[in-house]
């Protein structure tokens, strides 16, 4: 039998063999955990504006995100975040907490290879692409805006 044909048949056989797990529980978990994190952000934001009325809206949002980043980073450090993440999936990845976790987790993981080449260098193995793609995309937007 032709090898490519054989591999194709085997792949589709395997695909069919994989037990279809029910997606609903994971979708539901992602929804409510993600929603809760966003609500928590809103509460922080409102509290900041309530306590410091002079703070601009934009700065209040920056503070809110920094608080969430701190919390996610701390929870990652004490080994709780990966458990929440395993439960909620995209519910914790998509909010800014996922970004924070993706920087803190390699920082902790690769500490054994030294501070410079381990921790500092490997810190961005997951978040690096995010910053690069975001920066490049925003520069393209700026360029388009400049031209038109």
């Amino acid at each position: 039998m032709d090898e490519i044909e054989r591999n194709k048949r085997y792949n589709s056989y395997v695909e069919a063999k994989i037990a279809k797990t029910h997606a609903w529980p994971s979708l539901f978990n992602a929804f409510w955990v993600g929603g809760l994190i966003c609500t928590l952000g809103q509460v922080f934001n409102d509290l900041i504006l309530y306590i410091f009325p002079n703070v601009s809206t934009q700065s209040a949002w920056a503070y809110t995100l920094i608080i969430l980043i701190f919390l996610a980073s701390f929870l990652t450090g004490i080994g709780v975040f990966d458990k929440i993440g395993a439960f909620a999936g995209a519910g914790t990845i998509v909010p800014i907490t996922g970004f924070s976790n993706s920087i803190t987790s390699p920082a902790i993981e690769f500490k054994n290879e030294g501070i410079i080449f381990g921790m500092c260098a490997k810190m961005f193995i997951i978040a690096g692409p995010v910053i690069v793609s975001g920066t490049v995309a925003s520069m393209i937007v700026g360029l388009i805006y400049l031209i038109f």
């Binding site: 992602a30 929804f31 929603g35 999936g89 519910g91």
Partner: peptide, 12 residues
Amino acid sequence: FGTGGLVCLLGQ
């Protein structure tokens, strides 16, 4: 809660 949840649902 609803919209944040929906965004995450999309991610999932």
